[in-house]
Amino acid sequence: MRILTVVYTLIALALLLSFPEPASAHLVSTRFGELYSGLIHPLTALQHLVPWLGLGLLGGLLGNRTSRWVLLTFPLSAGAGALLAGGLPATAAIDHVNLFSFIVLGLLVALSVRLNRPTFLGLTVIFGLSHGFANGTPDLSGVPLLLYAVGVLLAAYVLIAIATAVTQLVSQRAAWGTIAIRAAGSWIVAIGLVFGGYSLTAGV
C-alpha cells in the first residue's frame, strides 16, 4: 500500500513537472520582479552608469575614510530618489542635474580635487537623489515601488563599491594609476559635454 502511494505520488509529480508553468509566470516578472528591474535599470542606462562610475572614481581618489561613507550615502539617496519619483511628477530639471553630474564628477576626478568630506558627501546625496529620481517610475505604487527602489539602491551599492575599491587599488599600487584614473575622469567630462550639448540642442 505504501509502495503504491509512493508510485502514485511519483507519477503525479512527473506529470506536474511535464506541464511546467509558462515562463511569464516566472519569479522575475512577479513578486520580486520589480527588484530586478530596479537593479538592472541604472546598470544598463549609460546616463546613470557613466556618472556613477565617476562618483566611484572620485570616492576612490579621496581615500578610504571618505569612500567608506559614500557606500552609505549614495545608495540610500538613490533609493530614496526612486521612491520619491513614485509620488512626484517627472521634471526636466532632474535630467539637467544628471547631465551636470557628468561634468562636475568628471572634472573633480580629472583635476583630482581634494574635496573635504562634508562637501563630497553632500554631492553624493544630491546626485544620488537626482539619479534615483530619474530611475524611478510613477507607474509603480505600493510594494512594487519599494522593491524597485531597493533594486536601485542595491545597484548603486554594488557599482560604487566596485568602482571605489578598484580606484583605490589602482591609484595606490601603480605608479601610473592616478594618471589613468584622472584620464578616465576627463573621458567622463568629454562624454558629458557631447551628450549634454546634444541633449540641449536636440531638446531631448
Binding site: A110, I179, R182, A183, G185, S186, W187, V189, A190, I191, L193, V194, G197, Y198, T201
Partner: peptide
C-alpha cells in the same frame, strides 16, 4: 605624458560640441 591624456578628451569634446550643433 600625463597632461595630454587628461586634457585631450575635453578639448576634443569642445570640437565635438561644435559638430553636434
Amino acid at each position: 605624458i600625463w597632461v595630454l591624456p587628461i586634457t585631450f578628451p575635453v578639448v576634443m569634446a569642445i570640437g565635438a560640441l561644435a559638430g553636434v550643433a
